[in-house]
């Protein structure tokens, strides 16, 4: 746990701060609300953790999220069974990620550039297909995913997040895929010599990120009762901030899914707390921007400390 000391302390500190500032902050209901609100960013950030881990970046996740929501909406509207629609949505996310990965790996274009481009492309496809109009969602199964509580207490999104937390954690920490991703982020050339196909790895990593965005897309569509073509604008930055706050290195080679989750919770607590104390939206933006700077500063400092400077 000592790896998480800093972020956990920050989280606890924020919780204490807001519980003094707002009497409503520390009740069970609000805490579950925070978890639910955090779920979408957290899942995006899980995928982002893999991407950052290999020293890449994925700025298109917000657009993939929106596109996937629309695919879900269109499928349901066209009368497909909800499970087929979910499968198609996940596939869309995977293909979008694969596209990012292939373009970058095959043509040796930095992922920063590729995903800035596809951020526009995926968003544009969504607008084009739906004529920029939202699609209403009334499928009971889909609505259940985002809005219901199991046994009347546990919100389903929270359960999904915890399930994915464990799943992604195991993939990153316990599979050859996860280990190779970490090592590749630490030193790509050494990974190649050790028998890692770094191009294939990059594609797979972006598929993971795409699928994570698709799951977030389903959750969001459910919570909003609709698929919005302009959904999740700027979420990519929140996801990156959550991962970096949680100790994932921006330059690759280090990070944990659990840390990312704590990072996402910090973002969620700050959002929720600022709302509860009635801070105007614009000021919230400023605070969030400052947090990103702090997170990156922590990353830089950690790196220097690790390398003994």
């Amino acid at each position: 746990m000592k790896n998480y000391g800093g972020v956990l302390l920050a989280l606890v500190g924020l919780v204490i701060l807001f519980s003094f500032l707002s009497p409503n902050f520390l009740n069970a209901n609000n805490i579950l609300t925070v978890f639910s609100q955090v779920s979408i960013i957290a899942i995006l950030a899980f995928g982002m953790t893999f991407v950052l881990m290999i020293g890449e970046i994925d700025l298109s996740v917000g657009s993939i999220l929106a596109l996937c929501g629309l695919v879900l909406g269109v499928m349901l509207y066209s009368g497909f069974n909800e499970w087929i629609a979910i499968a198609a949505t996940l596939l869309t996310g995977a293909l979008a990620g694969l596209f990012n990965g292939i373009v970058s790996a095959r043509f040796s274009i930095p992922t920063f550039i590729v995903t800035v481009a596809t951020m526009g492309i995926f968003r544009g496809i969504g607008y084009a297909v739906t004529d920029a109009k939202p699609i209403q969602i009334d499928n009971p199964v889909i609505l259940f995913i985002g809005n219901q509580k199991l046994f009347g207490v546990l919100p389903v999104p929270v359960l999904i997040v915890f399930f994915l937390l464990i799943l992604f954690h195991v993939i990153l920490a316990k599979t050859t895929f996860g280990r190779r991703a970490k090592m590749m982020g630490g030193n790509r050339l050494a990974a190649e010599y050790a028998g890692v196909n770094t191009k294939t790895m990059k594609m797979k990593i972006f598929v993971v990120s795409g699928i994570a965005a698709a799951i977030s897309g389903i959750l969001m569509a459910s919570r909003l009762y609709s698929a919005q073509p302009n959904a999740a604008g700027g979420y990519e930055l929140d996801a990156i901030a959550a991962a970096v706050l949680g100790g994932t290195s921006l330059t690759g080679g280090y990070g944990t899914v659990l840390g990312t989750f704590i990072g996402a919770l910090i973002m969620g607590v700050i959002n929720n707390g600022m709302n509860l104390i009635g801070m105007p939206y614009f000021y919230q933006q400023i605070v969030k921007g400052l947090i990103i700077i702090i997170a990156v500063y922590i990353d830089v400092r950690n790196k220097q400390r690790m390398l003994g400077k």
Partner: peptide, 16 residues
């Protein structure tokens, strides 16, 4: 540059 992942641990490099 080619042999080690310097930011990783001893065991991670050995089993890589």
């Amino acid at each position: 540059h080619e042999g080690l992942v310097l930011t990783a641990s001893v065991y991670e490099n050995v089993t890589f």
